[in-house]
Design a protein around this nucleic acid. Structure first.
Length: 552
RNA sequence: GCCCUCGUAGCUCAGUGGAUAGAGCAUUCGCCUCCUAAGCGAAGGGUCACAGGUUCAACUCCUGUCGAGGGCACCA
């Protein structure tokens, strides 16, 4: 419909002698029904080039508009807005579209099956996933779903650092616990991990247990002083724990990438060599530096430390070179805002290597901190982890659906307050239940109607003329744009907001009108409308990874 | 000190440069002999942090100030 109106306006503008390349037509949905179904500011945009009063231009434009089968009325309003009022046929056409497209309604093919990778969570195997990882998981998974709905070929990837100082620290911590040391003991590692889960790992290690994670099987040697065995076992143990966390959150990854693999396969070395060859490196103070200032950084960064090891961003660059070589013309990294500083360095490294990677590649979506509240107080302590709220604790307490919704329903770049009491509430306060209830309500009504859904094709939709029906029809029609915009903006929260509004329209309608009425033609039309609404609610919830229950 | 993000109703948050800035909670008042009251309707509640600027038009874009969070390692 938007395309149709754009075409009408383009022709009208042409007939006024305006070059169609000199302006772009913006059509929006007015907030108020008084302003029609669509509005454009075209006349105001043309005021300057034509040097005329916007209202006068609007009048000429309207006169020049070609006839249309869908437009009932056109008005000038305010400073020069042109408001379009559609006829019934144009308004209820969306119901047929929804019925025909089903689960695919709202989807488009903008991505043209091109390859995109969404990397998210990427927690290091040094502890259980916490609520911050949960936000990354919820946002990242929704992004992946959104991109798939927009026609991209999506790969979900989890990268973890199993090779650095943090892992040494983990190994020492487990080693200490295996010897029966507590954090209070003077020889317990200074920066060691103190959570109770370290004790569990030590016990399992001493018992010689076998762990399966990432398709690898690791058996503990049980030798208290075999640090290499402890390291391998602890990493596998925690990766397995994280797998359980992700499983509880119903998130699946296509690929797990290991930092250690980049070293063993020589990718780090070859990347360093490529950087040296690029001429953007230099030696100073016994260290090797990358001139990241050549690419917008405010100071150069050390690549190889004096003691010989590489700093963390070097394998990160190597990893991204691999991503590029694997054919991802688009990569989106979802991470916590505390990793913000890596962006400039990774991009600088990729530019230095100069293998055709575009300047702004890859994309980043950063999420801000999460604070968890219960009973009006901040929740900080977790038994398992010792210092933070674990994702699994949260899921166990509030459920997977509510956790996912709450973590994805806010803009990623603003700080989030997670109110456990609200998320648990099975009342109208809770947006998750509010939306799911709308879906269940429709299912219930359709069940009581008991008719065959296929008969809805023949419904006389012109009977849908009540104000609540017009509002609902318009909302359904918006879904396609919302899915497109949310993907373009990498903003899954837009889906959550849309669903709240759609549910609200449905609930208002439900209370204002009886659906199962005597008049069988009217009843059929209303069944067609709520059936379409049910489908869109489900499609939207699917994008968030939240279930659409038929009964509550 | 420098860089990034945020600042909207008492609280939690929406708001692709457009018309009277919205929703939920909380407060007040209504609605179930009727399809699920996990619902609906109504009222009150605002200097869109502050000050400039760009524009026909700014919550939205630009600059500065203040406030919150995060970054600024030969840690990851």
């Amino acid at each position: 419909m938007k395309a149709h109106l754009t075409e009408l306006l383009t022709q009208a503008a042409k007939s006024l002698g305006v070059d169609s390349a000199s302006f772009s037509i913006l059509l929006e949905r007015p907030k108020s029904a008084d302003h029609g179904d669509f509005a454009t500011n075209l006349a105001m945009m043309l005021a300057k080039p034509l040097r005329q009063n916007p209202r006068a231009i609007a009048e000429s434009l309207i006169k020049a508009l070609p006839a249309s089968d869908y437009v009932a009325k056109v008005e000038i309003a305010g400073a020069g807005f042109i408001n379009f009022f559609l006829n019934g046929q144009a308004r209820h056409g969306v119901i047929a579209q929804i019925r025909e497209q089903g689960d695919r309604f709202g989807h488009n093919s903008a991505g043209q099956r091109r390859k995109v990778q969404v990397e998210f969570v990427s927690a290091n195997p040094t502890g259980p996933l916490h609520v911050g990882h949960g936000r990354g998981a919820a946002v990242g998974d929704c992004l992946a779903r959104l991109l798939a709905a927009n026609g991209w070929d999506v790969t979900r990837e989890f990268y973890y650092n199993d090779a650095g100082a943090q892992i040494d620290n983990l190994t020492k911590s487990v080693h200490a616990r295996a010897q029966g040391l507590t954090p209070e003991h003077p020889t317990f590692p200074e920066e060691g991990y103190r959570g109770e889960y370290i004790i569990d790992i030590a016990k399992a290690y001493l018992a010689g247990e076998t762990i399966v994670a990432d398709d690898q099987q690791v058996t503990a040697s049980g030798d208290v002083n075999d640090l290499e065995s402890i390291r391998r076992f602890a990493v596998a143990y925690l990766r397995h724990e994280q797998d359980l966390d992700l499983q509880a959150f119903q998130i699946k990854f296509d690929v797990f990438s290991l930092e250690s693999g980049l070293y063993t396969e020589g990718k780090v070395e070859s990347t360093v060599q490529a950087l040296i060859n690029s001429g953007h490196t230099y030696e100073q103070d016994d260290a090797l530096w990358l001139k990241t200032t050549d690419f917008g950084d405010d100071k150069d960064r050390v690549m190889r430390k004096r003691e010989g090891g590489y700093t963390y961003f070097v394998p990160d660059v190597a990893y991204h070179v691999e991503k590029w070589k694997r054919g991802f013309e688009r990569v989106i990294n979802e991470q916590g805002a505390d990793h913000h500083s890596t962006i400039t360095r990774v991009r600088a490294g990729l530019q230095a290597i100069d293998i055709g990677i575009p300047q702004g590649w890859p994309d980043y979506v950063l999420h801000q901190m999460v604070t968890v509240m219960r009973g009006g107080e901040e929740v900080k302590l977790s038994k398992r982890a010792g210092s933070y709220v674990t994702l699994r604790d949260l899921i166990e307490e509030v459920g997977c659906d509510a956790t996912r919704y709450f973590l994805a329903a806010r803009r990623a770049d603003s700080q989030l307050v997670f109110d456990i009491d609200l998320a648990r509430a099975q009342t109208n306060d809770n947006p998750v239940y509010y939306i799911q209830y709308a879906h269940a309500r429709i299912c219930s009504v359709l069940g009581q109607w008991g008719g065959d859904q296929s008969t809805l094709v023949s419904a006389d939709l012109s009977r849908l003329d009540a104000p609540h029906e017009a509002a609902l029809l318009q909302r359904l029609d918006e879904f396609t744009d919302v899915v497109k915009n949310a993907a373009d903006e990498l903003a899954p929260h837009m889906i959550a907001n849309y669903l709240k509004e759609l549910a609200s329209d449905l609930h208002s309608y439900y209370n204002a009108q009886q659906f199962l009425v005597e008049d069988s033609a009217l009843k059929l039309a209303r069944m067609a409308l709520i059936s379409a609404t049910r489908q869109v609610l489900k499609n939207g919830l699917d994008l968030l990874g939240v279930s659409a229950p038929e009964k509550m």
